[in-house]
Design a binder for these strands. Structure first.
Length: 932
RNA sequence: GCCCUGGUGGUGGAAUUGGUAGACACGCAGGACUUAAAAUCCUGUUCGCCGCAAUGCGAGUGCGGGUUCAAUUCCCGCCUGGGGCACCA
């Protein structure tokens, strides 16, 4: 009777399906636990061994919690809208819905192989109307809300209108500037724009709606966006990497377009504060903090010579005010027009033309110093010094005020600029500045700084800010790097906006009109004027519907809520149900979503909470990032001249060769399977000749790279599951190392795990004798082994140390095997322990032991400390930390008894050598240290 | 450049709070069973030294210092792999 994993796994997977073993109810007297994976985008490539890593970890945890008596929600679904399916449609003419469906089926088949405990009755797909109806609905909530800064919460726009009718916008000033409204081209920058109640009441509808648009959490405006011509769409900041698109690597440029945005900037502080309440890794929190980029400083107004204009700059270092040698404004700055002197007009125009000619990519790639003098001078409010005003592209229009005061002795960029233009550098740092490198310290003593001289920089900032505020020349200011999130795409395969445009005014659809279904199209080409493909559909434009669609992160921002109540057609999720399941207790996924998905879904959660639809404002209580599994590529070396000849790696020095990727599955370690290679790619290398090592083998070289089909370094879980079984595969992925750690995949070693399962099997069955398990009482040694395992494995599983837990199983089974322990009293608890890791074999053995109910419903064995206690123990004794001997001490000896025992020990005297014993340390029940 | 994170045998890794470094597994070497192979089991496996013996000696967790009776763990300085941010004033 041997371990036939194929038969066993097949049987139990079907059985679990038939009995709906993993369906979970929304009501239970048990405590709840919500274990969630980041749902996958169903790509055409299918799963490789890296994908299931996180799923296996979460599955183990979910199953573990279930055994521990929790009602566990562990769902799975698909992030089914997205660019690749649409690109595929453009290239192959296959409707995204069709290819997505195919891909999902393939994913599902692969996932099912591995034996996950997902409750598939709760599956969600973001592209289904039943799902995106609620994505649209939540969008409308965002559209109909604004952020009330007085109470730091989102509120209904209706309320805002009431406030306007009563008080104008005195208590609710316009939050953000920089977005031009669709209807009103001239109302460029309405920051600070205010109106009274009677003015409000006198506005016509268009004017009122324009103003309200400045407040809505989902709003439409014109703005500089990342436009990708090749993809024909707008990308969010986090979808742009080094000036090219994250997907496809196409160039990205700035373009002014009508866009939808989410006013995430209003939530910057709460997104920051919320991080304190959740259990994410420090690295993850840092990434989000960085992205939000909160900084403290001051806005300072500088008078400008010969004009009435003022130049407002933002600085985090007001303490360096006496080191300002020049000002720099961004090329887009509105003051350029007004302050440039006649003499410098031509030069400035040339420079602006130059800046315009440069793409975003060029700007990123070659950060060379460029700029030009405007001819104008600003006045330092503290010493009336005249400061030249320059224009340069190193100052960004979008951050702060788009203008800076440059302090070259303290800022590297300013110093380089000063050197380039021969501007004299004022030193306010004395010895701390060597004239070569700027010193950004805050801890130096200020010199040549008028009334601040002799003061620490750290303290001086406060004084300057206070003075500025007293004189009305500046203001304390907090700034954020984070921008409002672009929320529209000129694409087809996404959620349509439930918005109609009538006379330039955006009207929301009524709830009863949802879902606004995505219409069928024949082609996916962009519409006119940067509009999406929907603009090509007459029936769509005739209804004046918005032609943009929502971006990929729309559906994924709230999917964790839908799993709770997936079939509800009256609400995105019943409040009672979300109160029950509450936050996700454990969320597992990759780091790549640190600033995209995670930030957006935290935002949506906060808004839904503010509006009272859910009762918590952080979605994920604990986040674990699984490491990336890299591929280990293999190369053969082809002779450059004789292209049929391949040279073994150790011999390539003597030849002129080029490396070629070969399929890792044809290579055992480094040794190439020559026959397989000849058959590879339909016999492309059938005529290959080989120059072999002395031992007659062909060796490949290796390199660690990202796992990808084109590098032939992908390993499919299907093959491994077929060869070793799902249980082995699951345990091996965990055994590989800590879940959080990135590592190259290596199949060597999977045998070890497989051996372990066979060894376990042999504790129950013998090939000759058949059943060998017995009902005898376990002895002390056996119980000791079992309870040590219970303790270790329970601890390890709870703290996500799955690799050490797997080791503990191996130790336990090795010991039981040595003890020839085949007793049910020990084996049963062991099976329960192992169920989260290797559910199939455990269920099989459990049943064969004669249990009627499923092991899935067993309860986790209780650890009994008395079973591992030892009566007396050999303790190592060390002198000054060096191990010298062992002594026998009974377990109930007190510390002073231990001391006496050690001192009395004849042997000790020899080592102590007349030196008095300073102290004795009895360390954590582990050893005794004598200090002399 | 800034932030984060890691560096331990031939390999993946373990050591949870400063307490016997190298668990567990792979690989390798030797052995048992077998006609043989597979499977299984046993022994050895950080490096160096001394051996008739062993409970022998010495070094050892990227490098150099420090704190401590005791450091893979804490502190300082460097080298290095990986990830993130990058004209954010």
């Amino acid at each position: 009777m041997e371990y036939d994993f194929r038969k066993i796994e097949n049987y139990w997977q079907n059985k679990w399906k038939e009995t709906n073993a993993y369906q979970v109810s929304n009501s239970s007297t048990k405590p709840k636990c919500y274990v969630l994976d980041m749902f996958p985008y169903p790509s055409g490539a299918g799963l490789h061994v890296g994908h299931p890593l996180g799923y296996i970890a979460s599955d183990i945890y979910a199953r573990f919690k279930r055994l521990k008596g929790f009602n566990v929600l562990h769902p799975m679904g698909y992030d089914a809208f997205g660019l690749p399916a649409e690109q595929y449609a453009i290239e192959h003419g296959i409707h995204p819905a069709v290819s997505t469906e195919d891909n999902i089926n393939n994913f599902r088949r692969q996932l099912d192989n591995i034996g996950f405990s997902f409750d598939w009755s709760r599956e969600v797909r973001t592209s289904q109307p039943g799902y995106y109806k609620w994505t649209q609905w939540i969008f409308l909530q965002l559209f109909n809300s604004y952020y009330n800064r007085q109470i730091n919460k989102a509120e209904s726009v209706e309320l805002l209108v009431k406030y306007f009718e009563a008080d104008g916008n005195k208590y609710n000033p316009i939050p953000n500037a920089g977005y031009q409204l669709p209807g009103t081209d001239d109302r460029k920058n309405v920051s600070g724009f205010s109106f009274t109640a009677s003015e409000w009441n006198a506005y016509d509808e268009a004017q009122q709606q324009d103003i309200l648009m400045q407040y809505r959490l989902a709003f439409c405006g014109y703005g500089e966006v990342n436009w990708c011509e090749a993809l024909g769409t707008v990308l969010a900041n986090d979808e742009v990497v080094n000036g090219v698109s994250e997907r496809g690597g196409f160039p990205v440029e700035k373009k002014r377009l009508r866009q939808w945005y989410l006013r995430i900037t209003e939530y910057a502080d709460r997104l920051l504060e919320g991080l304190e309440t959740v259990d994410f890794s420090e690295a993850m929190k840092d990434m989000q903090r960085n992205w939000i980029g909160k900084s403290y400083g001051a806005d300072i107004d500088f008078e400008i010579n010969d004009t009435i204009e003022k130049l407002k700059v933002y600085t985090t270092r007001p303490d360096t005010i006496f080191g300002v040698d020049f000002m720099v404004i961004a090329p887009e700055h509105e003051l350029i027009e007004k302050i440039t002197t006649r003499k410098h007009r031509q030069e400035v125009d040339d420079y602006l033309a130059y800046v315009k000619s440069r793409s975003e990519r060029e700007r990123m790639a070659e950060k060379k110093i460029s700029g030009c003098f405007t001819g104008a001078y600003a006045i330092n409010p503290f010493n009336s010094r005249e400061i030249p005003i320059y224009i340069s592209e190193y100052v960004l229009a979008g951050y702060g005020t788009g203008a800076i005061m440059a302090v070259p002795c303290g800022d590297e960029r300013d110093l380089r600029f000063a050197k380039h233009f021969g501007i004299n550098v004022t030193n306010i740092l004395g010895d701390q500045f060597n004239g070569e490198e700027a010193n950004p310290t805050k801890d130096a003593e200020l010199l040549d700084s008028d009334f601040l001289t002799g003061m620490l920089m750290r303290d001086a900032g406060e004084i300057i800010i206070r003075d500025l505020e007293d004189w009305g020349k500046g203001k304390r200011k907090v700034n954020y790097k984070m921008r409002d999130a672009a929320f529209s795409r000129q694409r087809y395969w996404g959620e349509p906006f439930p918005i109609k445009w009538i006379n330039g005014i955006a009207y929301p659809l009524d709830d009863t009109e949802l879902p606004l279904e995505l219409p069928k199209v024949d082609e996916y080409k962009p519409g006119p004027d940067g509009e999406g493909p929907l603009a090509n559909i007459e029936s769509w434009t005739a209804q004046q519907l918005e032609t943009n669609t929502m971006p990929g992160y729309a559906g994924s921002s709230w999917y964790f809520l839908r799993y709770m109540d997936p079939h509800n057609s009256d609400a995105f999720c019943d409040r009672k149900v979300s109160d029950y399941w509450n936050q996700v207790d454990l969320y597992i996924g990759g780091t790549e979503h640190a600033v995209g998905h995670l930030l957006y879904s935290r935002l949506w959660t906060k808004v839904l909470c503010d509006l009272g639809y859910i009762g918590f404002d952080e979605p994920y209580k604990k986040l674990v990032n699984q490491g990336m599994i890299q591929g280990s590529s293999r190369f053969v070396y082809r002779d450059k001249v004789d292209t049929d000849t391949f040279i073994s790696y150790n011999l390539i020095k003597a030849y002129d060769t080029i490396p070629i990727h070969v399929d890792v599955n044809m290579v055992d370690g480094f040794e190439l399977d020559i026959e397989a290679f000849k058959k590879w790619r339909n016999g492309e290398y059938a005529n290959a000749k080989f120059i072999l090592e002395n031992n007659g083998k062909y060796f490949c070289s290796s390199e660690v790279e990202k796992m990808s089909k084109s590098k032939f370094n992908t390993v499919s879980p299907d093959l491994l599951v077929d060869k070793y079984g799902a249980d082995t595969f699951r345990m091996y992925e965990m055994f590989l190392g800590p879940v959080e750690q990135s590592k190259p995949w290596d199949t060597k070693g999977i045998e070890g795990v497989h051996r372990f399962l066979r060894k376990l099997w042999r504790l129950f069955f013998d090939e000759v004798k058949g059943n060998i398990w017995t009902g005898e009482k376990a002895n002390e040694a056996e119980l000791k082994t079992l309870h040590r395992a219970i303790k270790k494995i329970e601890d390890d599983t709870e703290r996500f140390s799955f690799n050490t837990a797997v080791s503990a199983f191996m130790v336990c089974v090795n010991e039981l095997s040595d003890l020839k322990c085949t007793k049910r009293e020990v084996l049963e608890p062991l099976l329960i322990l192992l169920t989260p890791y290797a559910p199939h074999i455990c269920e099989e053995l459990w049943t064969r032991l004669g249990n009627n109910s499923s092991i899935l419903d067993a309860s986790f064995p209780v650890f009994e400390a008395k079973n591992i206690a030892e009566s007396a123990k050999e303790y190592p004794v060390s002198v000054n930390g060096k191990l010298r001997t062992t002594i026998n001490i009974s377990l109930d000896a007190t510390e002073s008894e231990v001391e006496q025992l050690v001192l009395a020990n004849e042997i000790m005297k020899k080592w102590i050598e007349d030196k008095p014993v300073k102290k004795l340390i009895f360390v954590k029940n582990k050893m005794v240290n004598v200090v002399v």
